[in-house]
Structures are given as C-alpha cells and as structure tokens.
C-alpha cells in the first residue's frame, strides 16, 4: 500500500507491505525491514537491522505526532480522503493573499480597514497568545478586501484574518 506524507514541507511517498510482524517499507527507493517488537496505543518498539528503537506517537486530525530517539516530528497524512474524513490541512499557509493566524490567539489590535491600501510588510493586526504579542504583516502590496475578525475574537491557527487583494494589473509588473 502506498501512502503520502508531508514532513517539514517535503512530500514523501511511502510504500508499506506487511508479513507477520515484519514490515517492509520503501521511502525514496530506500528499502527498510522493520520488525515490530511491541505496539500499543502510544508506544511502538521495533528493530531495523538489529538496532532497537522506541517511539511514541499519537494522532490529531491528520497529523501524527512522533517522538523517536529524542526528536519530535509532525507527519501530515496527505494520502487523500479516507474513511469519510475530509482531508484538510491545518498548516497555516499563505495561500494566495489570505492573511492567516499563525497560532491560536486573541485579536488584540486591527490597524487597517476595509478598502485600505497596504504595502508589503505593513502591520495589519496583532494576535496575542500566552502573554506574547505577534504582529501580522501584509504579505504583499494591495488593498484590504475584507476583514474576517473583530477585536477580542479568539481565532484558531490558520484562521483567515484579513483578505488582501492585489491591485488590478499588479501581477504583470
């Protein structure tokens, strides 16, 4: 079976086959044989080439949180729709010119109004979480098409705070 994952912005295709307690997994043409020693809700013990590994992992939405050998990984399952659960990325990404909240928090200040012209790097609003303020800046020149938050709103990571549209014709310059 082939699965697709994303780790730190890199896409990986993982081919996985199972025989008894041994998995054979291929990642980027590199083949591994993994012998499972123990596996429960959180803990997985396994051996590769005789070396023992202990890993902890848990899933939230489509993301596996993996701890292995003292390192932490966020592995996003991007295999597509499965089990009727919508495949949706909650990685805050600047898709187009949406200005998204980089973390969950409270909207502390909004510096712009609908229709305002903005310059790249201009302060748009301030999000506060855990006593830290984070200034959200304009990703591009353009104008404010809409504001999708109000003062004191609690927003999730990835929430589109402000829509910035480029001025017509800007793309060609």
């Amino acid at each position: 079976m082939v699965r697709k994952f994303k780790v730190m912005d890199n896409d990986y295709t993982v081919d996985i086959q199972k025989r008894d307690t041994v998995y054979s997994i291929t990642i980027k043409e590199k083949k591994y044989n993994i012998k499972i020693i123990y596996h429960d809700q959180i803990l997985i013990l396994f051996k590769i080439n005789g070396k023992k590994y202990k890993s902890y992992c848990a899933k939230n939405a489509h993301v596996w949180y993996v701890h292995v050998d003292g390192q932490f990984y966020l592995v996003h399952n991007i295999s597509g729709k499965r089990f009727g659960i919508e495949q949706q990325s909650n990685i805050p990404a600047n898709v187009g010119l949406d200005v998204r909240a980089p973390m969950p928090g409270k909207v502390l200040k909004i510096y712009v109004q609908k229709g305002d012209n903005v310059k790249i790097g201009q302060d748009l609003c301030v999000i506060e979480a855990m006593k830290m303020e984070h200034v959200i800046k304009a990703p591009n020149d353009g104008f404010v098409e809409s504001i999708n938050c109000s003062l004191t709103d609690i927003v999730d990571a990835g929430h589109i705070l402000i829509d910035i549209k480029e001025h017509p014709g800007d793309e060609t310059t």
Binding site: V14, I27, I34, S55, V66, V68, D69, Q71, V75
Partner: peptide
Amino acid sequence: KPGYDHVDLSLMISAIEEDT
C-alpha cells in the same frame, strides 16, 4: 534549527500506525 536525523523513521512509524 533542530536536528532531524530520523525523518525516515518518523515516516515509517506513521505508515505502520496508519496500517494498524
């Protein structure tokens, strides 16, 4: 930047978990 020496391991673990 944090060290990431085990990306492949993290992928294998996730794939095994998905399979289970």
